[in-house]
Design a protein around this nucleic acid. Structure first.
Length: 602
DNA sequence: CTAGGGTTAG
C-alpha cells in the first residue's frame, strides 16, 4: 500500500508526497485538497522558496504547474512571479496560450503596469512568435473583447517601443481584423515609430485606419503626423493639417509650430527661412509662446542658410521674448561663425557664454577647432584642444579626427599619425573616419601603397573599410592612371556589401576619361543606371569634359541637352567646361539659349 | 509628440 501511495502521489497533479493514507485519498478524491495543495504551492511562490518548489518538479513538470496555477485561478501576481522565475531560471518557453491566459488574468485584475512590463520583455525575448499566432492564442483563450483589446493594445505599444515597426504594424492590422479596439496612446507610439523609420505610406495607412476605426486622434497624433509630413518634405500639407485640427477644435501647441518651423528649415525649398520665420510670427499671433527649442531651430536654420545676420537677429528676438539662450543656442551660432571663417566673433561668443555661467562643451570646441583648422591656424587649434582638458572635459573621436584631417590636408603626415597615437594613449578609440583621414592624407602625398596597406590592416583594429575609404582609394588610383585597379576596388566593395555612391561612379568615370577611355566611362554610366542610380550633374560634368577633351564637341553638346531635358541644373563646373572646352574652341553649344540665360556669364 | 552643435570622399 505505501508503495502504491507513493506511486499515485508521485503522479498526482501537484506531485506532493503525502505521509498518510487519509491525506492520500483526499488528494485524489477531493477538490478541497487540490485547492489546499495549490495554496501550498502559491505560498512557496509568494515567499520565493524556489528550491523547495523545485522538489515538486520530479513529479509535476514546471509547464504543467503553470497550467494548474492558471486553472486554479490563483493570484495573477503569483502566477506572473512563477512565470518569470521559470522562464529565467529554467530557461522555459511556455506555450502561447498559457501566456495569453496569464495576461488575461492580469488584465481582469487591472494589473496594467505589470502587463506592460511583461509584454515589453515578451517582444524582446520571444519575437519569434508570429503576430498571427499571438492573435490566435489570445482569441482562443478568452472571448472578452474588452480584455483582449487591452492585451493587444499593449502588444502594439511594446512592439513600437522596441522599434519593431513591422510587427507593430501587423498587430495594428490584426487588431482591426479581430475587432479589437486600440488606444490612441499605442497608435501614437506606432505612428511615431513609423515616422522615425521613414515609412510614410504606412503612416498614412495608420492615420486612415485610425479615423475609420474611430480611434481618438488627439493633439499628439496630429503633432506626429505633422512631423511625418515635414520629414517627407510635404510642408504645404503639414500647414494644411494645422488648419484642419483647428477646425476640429484641437488647438496646435508649441510643439506643433516648432515641428513645422523645423520642417521648413530642413526640408523647405526656395524662401524656406522666410517661411519658417512666418510660422514663428503665426505662432505668436495665435498666442503660443516659442521656447528655446523653437529659437534654436530657427537660429541653426539661418546659420546653415549662410545668413548669419538673420541668425543674430533671431538671437536678439529670443532675448526680447524672455527666452534664455542655452549651450545649444551658442553652439549653433559659434558653428555658423566658424564655418564662415569669422573666428574672432566665434571666440567672442564663447567668452560671452562663459561670462553668463554657461560652460562650453566638447561640441563648442569641436566647432572652434574646425574653424581654426580650416584657416590653417593649426597652433591655435591645438591651443583650443588643450583647453578642453583644462576645462575638465575629454576630447572625443571627432575632436581628434578634425585635427588629424587638418594635419593630413597640410601634408604633415608624421604629426597626423602622432595625433592618432596620442588618442590611443588617452583611450579614445580611432574610428573608420580617423583612418579615412590618414588614408586620404597618404594618397594625396602619392603614397597609395601605404594607404592600401593601412586599409588592409583595418581588420586587426576591428574596423572595416567603408564607402568613403573606397572612394578615397578609387580616386587615388585613378589619379595614378590605374583606373583598371580602381575598377577592381569597385567590384570589391560591392562584394563586401557596400553600395557605391554617385561619388564612387563619378570618380571612376573621371579616371577613365582622363585615360581617354571613353568607352569604359560610358559603359560605367550604363552600369550605374542598371543599379538604378540616376546620373547627377557631376556625372554629366565628368562625361562632358571627357568628350570635349577627345574633341567630341558634338557629343558633349548632346549630353548637355540631355541633362537639361532631365531637369538637372547646370552648376559652376558645367559653365566652366562649356566656356573653356567648347567656346574657346569656337564651338557654339546648341542648347536653345538655356545655358546662356541661366549663367549670364557666357 | 517638437531640436540643437562636431569628422572623412567630390
Amino acid at each position: 500500500m505505501p508503495l502504491k501511495i507513493l506511486f499515485f502521489s508521485g503522479k498526482s497533479p501537484l506531485g506532493i508526497v503525502f505521509s498518510g493514507n487519509k491525506q492520500c485519498l483526499r488528494s485524489f478524491c477531493s477538490a478541497d485538497s487540490t485547492a489546499e495543495n495549490m495554496h501550498n504551492i502559491t505560498e512557496l511562490i509568494r515567499n520565493q522558496h524556489w528550491s523547495k518548489l523545485r522538489t515538486h518538479f520530479s513529479s509535476t513538470s514546471p509547464k504543467t504547474l503553470l497550467q494548474q496555477l492558471i486553472n486554479s485561478e490563483a493570484d495573477p501576481d503569483l502566477v506572473l512571479r512563477y512565470f518569470n522565475w521559470s522562464t529565467k531560471e529554467l530557461k522555459l518557453f511556455h506555450p502561447l496560450e498559457l501566456t495569453c491566459r496569464l495576461l488575461q488574468s492580469l488584465a481582469a485584475a487591472k494589473k496594467y503596469s505589470k502587463m506592460r512590463n511583461f509584454l515589453h520583455r515578451f517582444v524582446q525575448n520571444e519575437s519569434f512568435h508570429s503576430v498571427p499566432s499571438i492573435f490566435h492564442a489570445v482569441s482562443v483563450s478568452n472571448d472578452s473583447l474588452c480584455i483582449n483589446s487591452i492585451i493587444v493594445d499593449m502588444l502594439v505599444l511594446a512592439y513600437a517601443k522596441n522599434m519593431k515597426h513591422n510587427l507593430g504594424l501587423e498587430a495594428f492590422k490584426r487588431a482591426g481584423d479581430y475587432g479589437l479596439k486600440l488606444s490612441s496612446l499605442s497608435c501614437n507610439q506606432l505612428l511615431s515609430l513609423l515616422v522615425k523609420k521613414e515609412k510614410f505610406e504606412e503612416v498614412e495607412y495608420v492615420y486612415k485606419e485610425m479615423r475609420r476605426r474611430r480611434i481618438e486622434f488627439n493633439l499628439i497624433s496630429f503633432n506626429i503626423v505633422i512631423n511625418g509630413l515635414c520629414k517627407f518634405g510635404k510642408l504645404n500639407k503639414a500647414s494644411d493639417v494645422i488648419d484642419d485640427m483647428k477646425l476640429l477644435g484641437i488647438l496646435p501647441n508649441s510643439i506643433t509650430y516648432t515641428t513645422l518651423i523645423d520642417g521648413y528649415c530642413k526640408k523647405g525649398k526656395i524662401g524656406k527661412m522666410y517661411k519658417a520665420d512666418a510660422v514663428l510670427k503665426d505662432m505668436v499671433e495665435n498666442g503660443i509662446q516659442p521656447n528655446e527649442r523653437t529659437f534654436n531651430i530657427l537660429i541653426d536654420g539661418f546659420c546653415k542658410d549662410k545668413n548669419l545676420p538673420a541668425a543674430m537677429k533671431v538671437f536678439d528676438e529670443m532675448k526680447s521674448h524672455g527666452v534664455t539662450a542655452g549651450v545649444v543656442t551658442y553652439n549653433s551660432l559659434i558653428n555658423g561663425l566658424c564655418v564662415h571663417g569669422q573666428l574672432d566673433e566665434a571666440i567672442a561668443l564663447r567668452d560671452e557664454m562663459m561670462g553668463l555661467g554657461l560652460m562650453p562643451n566638447v561640441i563648442t570646441y569641436n566647432a572652434l577647432i574646425k574653424g581654426f583648422c580650416e584657416k590653417k591656424m593649426l597652433d591655435k587649434a591645438r591651443e583650443l584642444f588643450d583647453d578642453i582638458s583644462k576645462q575638465g572635459m575629454v576630447p572625443t573621436v571627432i575632436t581628434y579626427n578634425t585635427l588629424i584631417n587638418a594635419y593630413c590636408k597640410d601634408g604633415k603626415m608624421e604629426d597626423a599619425f602622432a595625433w592618432r597615437d596620442s588618442m590611443l594613449d588617452r583611450g579614445v578609440l580611432p574610428d573608420i573616419s580617423t583612418y579615412n583621414c590618414l588614408i586620404g592624407g597618404l594618397c594625396s602625398k602619392g603614397n597609395v601603397e601605404e594607404a592600401r596597406k593601412i586599409t588592409n590592416e583595418l581588420r586587426n583594429k576591428h574596423l572595416r573599410a567603408d564607402l568613403v575609404t573606397y572612394n578615397i582609394l578609387i580616386g587615388a588610383l585613378c589619379k595614378e592612371g590605374e583606373s583598371k585597379n580602381a575598377a577592381k576596388l569597385l567590384d570589391e566593395m560591392v562584394k563586401v556589401g557596400l553600395s557605391p555612391s554617385h561619388v564612387t561612379y563619378n570618380t571612376l568615370m573621371d579616371g577613365y576619361c582622363r585615360e581617354g577611355n571613353l568607352v569604359a566611362a560610358l559603359n560605367l554610366r550604363k552600369q550605374m543606371e542598371k543599379e538604378k542610380m540616376r546620373p547627377n550633374i557631376a556625372t554629366y560634368n565628368v562625361l562632358i569634359r571627357g568628350l570635349c577633351q577627345k574633341g567630341k564637341l558634338q557629343g558633349a553638346n548632346g549630353l548637355l541637352n540631355e541633362l537639361l531635358e532631365k531637369g538637372l541644373i547646370p552648376n559652376q563646373t558645367t559653365y566652366e567646361i562649356v566656356r573653356e572646352e567648347m567656346m574657346e574652341k569656337g564651338f557654339v553649344p546648341d542648347i536653345e539659349g538655356h545655358l546662356y540665360n541661366v549663367s549670364g556669364t557666357l
